[in-house]
Nucleic acid binder design. Sequence first.
DNA 1: CGGTAAGTTGAAGATTTTCAAGTTCGGTGG
DNA 2: CCACCGAACTTGAAAATCTTCAACTTACCG
Lengths: 249, 249
Amino acid sequence: MPKSLSLSKKKPDVTCHSNPNVSCADCRLNTLCLPISLHIEEIDILDSIVKRGRPLQRSNYLFRANDEFKSVYAVRSGSFKTYTLSASGEEQITGFYLPGEILGMDGLNNDFHSNSAVALETSAICEIPFTRMEEISLTIPALQRRFFQLMSKEIAGDQQLLSLISRNTADERIASFLLSISARNHQRQLSPTSFNLSMSRTELANYLGLTIETTSRVFSRLNKKGLIKVDKKQIEIIDMDNLRKSAAA
Amino acid sequence: MPKSLSLSKKKPDVTCHSNPNVSCADCRLNTLCLPISLHIEEIDILDSIVKRGRPLQRSNYLFRANDEFKSVYAVRSGSFKTYTLSASGEEQITGFYLPGEILGMDGLNNDFHSNSAVALETSAICEIPFTRMEEISLTIPALQRRFFQLMSKEIAGDQQLLSLISRNTADERIASFLLSISARNHQRQLSPTSFNLSMSRTELANYLGLTIETTSRVFSRLNKKGLIKVDKKQIEIIDMDNLRKSAAA
DNA sequence: CGGTAAGTTGAAGATTTTCAAGTTCGGTGG
DNA sequence: CCACCGAACTTGAAAATCTTCAACTTACCG
């Protein structure tokens, strides 16, 4: 996806969030990401342990299930999916992660990741070594609290998804999903009505507990009803009010 | 809510886990609960902030959605369900909690509980004031880590449930659920093959994303197949191997 | 002992899945 | 630059599972 890709090289450009030179203090995502509610000195300490690597290409793994848990990761640009394998070995997508969101917290349970994480497009991440973070958390209570919050939010998100899948129809699930992406884009100063889905229909179907055919049919239906305009992965929300009603359930 | 108020009267009976006088160090659940991997001195510090209250009766609330978040709770005896309300106001049960399990972590996100928690039977709990726990966590790294682990486990559990609901048939869901209860009982030195479900069919159906009728039919079917013996809420697992196969998917 | 809540069972209906056939897109090589 | 190939997606029709509606039985509580 045509997001950024600035491959460093040139002068520091603090406006571009995929630039590996941008510190947490300067990062335009720091109102969404881990640093929320930290003071500037605290942010600098956090910043000192963050590793900023080169971008991952589409379908590259950030970590795999059963990898040793060492770090959590903040999405700097691009997007990721995480998935677990079900008892029978099928992929179950557990989340999509956008810039400013944290992934990898599934690994704290027993020192190994239970999920795998894959880049859906060219993406950049900030790696936060967990042991280091734990150490500095002991001296920055706000950071400890923030991390608890993030995990709690993850739980809340999973529970909401659970409710969505277990109580709502296919149309409602897709509509809710689109509204979720819309809202998350809005938080990032991106258009809430026009965006590009970085995941395939298959991945979306999997996430929402549907088949690809049903998912495809729902997109066609919402398109025909005039609630959204679908052009492959490019989505435009035409009638937000009625899309909300479709999601309501 | 009728929390704390430890009645403490008679002589300490360390064998009974619903006795409010049992300290963490003596509690027979301390290999499951928060104290895992803490040293004895650390357990004593943790113990000093734990409030042990009188039992809650069936259908009493431990906390309600939108209550201010103050504490997390360890189940001492009995059992609880937690639930959220969906967009349309329907109850979505998010978990069942057995002795030694921790609930209430949904509240860290924004200082208010997103779930409500209700006793399914007469139950006792240990209340752990969260601010106090955060404070002592700063001096007991193992406790901080343990709490991260518990939250991570909660996430893993939710994701597994998600996968179960979104990929498995009604029979598989019920079979998996029974196996889960069986395993958790086993951890508590209770019979893994004979136990009493503390939740109603309606609650179980809700939790597994089914209707009560389907749930009832599945119980009848598993009973007829000779995998389990159902007598109201009393369940006996007759053929563990085939029950596992039924859950496999 | 009666009344209400909980659970069971049957039959019809509905949504989603499965199976199948196309279509479109995107990349690759000629 | 175009043609070709596979992957992704779309659409239709049949099949399956689950839900809904309904009637009935059983259990629980005062």
